[in-house]
Nucleic acid binder design. Sequence first.
DNA 1: GCCACCCCTGACACTCAGTGCAGATGTATG
DNA 2: CATACATCTGCACTGAGTGTCAGGGGTGGC
Lengths: 247, 247
Amino acid sequence: MSSSSAVPAAKPPMRDALVAAAFRLFLERGYEQTTVDDIVALAGVGRRSFFRYFPSKEDVVFPDHERCLADMTAFLAASGAEHEPVRRVCDAARMVLGMYAENPTFSVQRYRLTRQVPGLRAYELSVVWRYERALAAYLRGWFAGQPDGTLRADVIAAAVVAAHNNALRSWLRSDGAGDAGAAVDHALGCVQRAFGRPAEVAGRAGGSGPAPLWGAGRADDVVVLVSRRDAPVWQVVREWEAALGRG
Amino acid sequence: MSSSSAVPAAKPPMRDALVAAAFRLFLERGYEQTTVDDIVALAGVGRRSFFRYFPSKEDVVFPDHERCLADMTAFLAASGAEHEPVRRVCDAARMVLGMYAENPTFSVQRYRLTRQVPGLRAYELSVVWRYERALAAYLRGWFAGQPDGTLRADVIAAAVVAAHNNALRSWLRSDGAGDAGAAVDHALGCVQRAFGRPAEVAGRAGGSGPAPLWGAGRADDVVVLVSRRDAPVWQVVREWEAALGRG
DNA sequence: GCCACCCCTGACACTCAGTGCAGATGTATG
DNA sequence: CATACATCTGCACTGAGTGTCAGGGGTGGC
């Protein structure tokens, strides 16, 4: 089972040779100054073969994002009802980080390229967008039915992606020094606290309250009580006790 | 002062003619089936003139985003210290919506195009990304110095854009029926409540609380109380009264 | 009225990304 | 050895985008 079988993930060496040749040229003379002909000449293959493995010149810069996206989608699809959804999408984001952290030097080189080539930046945006849509689709399924469910799903997905990217980029900017995982954990932790499990809200004392607060979160043994400022104290106490289940 | 002066915004009619010709062809035979030569032939101008007014074929689909982005940036730059930052970026997002709402039919047509043409979707993403970066840059300046300031800025900017897009897209999907402004107001209101002014948190009764919650918000006459589950009622009441300023 | 000047426009030629097609090569199976 | 199949290569073609230059229609000075 060395290289045969029907496994579609069996990497042909040509693909890797093209990636290597491409990056070598991109780094020494820039992305836009390198033509596809240059790449295939260095790799010693025909021009047509390049487009067999990469649908466009940009794709060679992100050789394994397609697989990573598929992995993430599978991860979300395999989620059961026992998983807390916000935590789950944060874990999915951590998976993506793992792909970057696998080979830091490659990720840093690519980061520098995408920073200075507008076309690559646009391409990366479309990749990130697909990740974000996958997260949002998962959350939409979870929040389906509840008011503003799709809105909430979209916002949380965007926040998770933004937090992930914030930590990832600062790690990449530091040339891959430090612990990327810890940075992303911290960033995602903030988002999780902000959006995590729909508040164990104690209810709203004093009549009709404001629109529901997404952010009113619960962190283990902490209870959040939302109330109108002019509510009488006895009503607040009653709501408080009700929230604890002793009412 | 009909058409002379040094005003750079004096629109040449040729630009509008190109947009009109382009959309006419895009709608009747599709974006990818229309070449730039087709457009200039219909508009009766030379091919080179197209690229004088639009740097790429995609740009003709978003003829006024550049101006809108400049307007939004100016709006943020003109913000003083008296503006609450999250509200300010939400208002900036409302400005963008205004541009879409100006001519609904055009916006709906463009939406249908971008939905089904991957290249246009990617282009729109890069446009949206620039809006998001402008919002984030403004917030970063505001949160500069405080812990996780850039993270918070990035997350809020992403959330605002996601909420805006959620409402905008559902409006566009309904062919421009209904009140777009109200929908965006509602969506942005949710984000504002979630991230707005750092909670008038009543304090944390019963010892050290959880990590700070971004989301613990305040909405006018509403007070949020965070407390440990095992705090005695008398302590909760004391914190509550202290928060109201009567303690 | 005439000329110099300048900006806008159009036409041609060119590079390069991406695609379709036909043929060459290599390999496993009968 | 012959056949079927997959992979690779070369070639020709479309279309986007750019550099360059010549012509044309205004404007200001003489």
